[in-house]
């Protein structure tokens, strides 16, 4: 086969997806030769070059000749983002729990991270989303191969349908602020032991629990992030806040849990505090799952006729 044609086929093949690639390439090569032979002067170098040029961009040729179905069909593109978002909510939730329990991070995309530091966290969050996006693609592909269609009805049940849960009221913003103030007080109590300073009597042994300060810091990070987003949401309505608020809370919690990581304690009180924080994370994970679903249906609502 002529060098011009071989070179062209080499540029086509990386973009070609067909059951019998070699056969397809042979046929493309053969059609180029036929085209050149049909030109005045027959199969000269110039005519072969012109025939190759007339085929167009190798990527377009490969797209036209590809017979296999793409990994994710065009009509699944939005569903792809939705699934990736739902998986991401679970991934971040698992990472926070892992950081809180003082154990290693045993979540995707990394099989095992002995210690999640603030630096690895910076890489982890976007990388985890890329991983979940790929996982969503795989799930859709497997589902399609099994002959079933990916539906959204099950996600519709998760989403908030209550319109009152949209833009926050001023009361809700104030409520969030009160939450921050309360948590600041809790932190101060934990950090400086104010009752001891003012010589309050009573069983104020809470400060002696090693996990109390990390607990207060994590809670403070969570409520501060949620208050900030609620405040911005109050100023501007946008469906994405349904995702941003729980995600910001989760990320703040993950950062705090990573920074103030303490080794696992065996004390009952310590265990209870960790348990409370883990339950909080589970609730926030569910909030994030709901947020993804709610924003998805808000963005894909039927147009007003």
């Amino acid at each position: 086969m002529n060098a011009h044609i071989s070179d062209f086929l080499e540029r086509v093949r990386p973009f070609l997806v067909a059951a019998n690639e070699v056969d397809v390439l042979r046929e493309i090569g053969s059609s180029v030769e036929d085209r050149a032979a049909g030109m005045a002067g027959g199969m000269t170098e110039e005519n072969l070059q012109a025939a190759v040029g007339a085929m167009g961009d190798p990527r377009d040729v490969a797209a036209a000749w590809s017979t296999a179905r793409p990994a994710v069909a065009a009509n699944y593109r939005k569903i792809h983002w939705l699934l990736a978002g739902l998986l991401y909510a679970v991934t971040v939730g698992m990472a926070v729990i892992s950081a809180i329990t003082g154990g290693a991070t045993f979540v995707g995309p990394f099989v095992y991270i002995p210690s999640l530091t603030p630096l690895t966290l910076l890489c982890y969050l976007p990388f985890a989303f890329v991983f979940d996006y790929g996982l969503a693609s795989l799930l859709i592909q497997v589902n399609e191969r099994l002959g079933t269609r990916v539906g959204v009805e099950w996600v519709r049940h998760i989403a908030h349908r209550d319109p009152r849960r949209g833009r926050p009221t001023l009361g809700r913003v104030i409520g969030e602020l009160v939450g921050v103030a309360g948590t600041v007080a809790l932190y101060l109590l934990a950090r400086f032991g104010i009752p001891h300073v003012v010589s309050l009597p009573g069983p104020m042994q809470l400060m002696k629990i090693p996990f109390f300060i990390p607990f207060a810091v994590c809670e403070l990070a969570l409520v501060t992030a949620e208050f900030t987003v609620t405040f911005v949401h109050y100023a501007r309505d946008w469906p994405a806040f349904a995702i941003i608020k729980p995600l910001a809370g989760m990320v703040a919690l993950l950062i705090a849990a990573t920074i103030v990581r303490t080794s696992a304690q065996s004390g009952l009180a310590d265990l209870i505090l960790r348990g409370v924080l883990v339950v909080t994370v589970l609730i926030k994970t569910w909030d994030l799952v709901q947020g993804v679903a709610t924003a998805f249906f808000a963005w894909n609502a039927a147009p007003r006729m």
């Binding site: 053969s30 059609s31 085929m55």
Partner: peptide
Amino acid sequence: YGYMIVRVLEEQGLTVDENTLYPLLRRLEE
């Protein structure tokens, strides 16, 4: 063969893009 079809159709006044015809032939074969 593919190019022969292109030529015959051209003689009948129907211009066909090869990148359309060949994949169609393969689909019909499948």
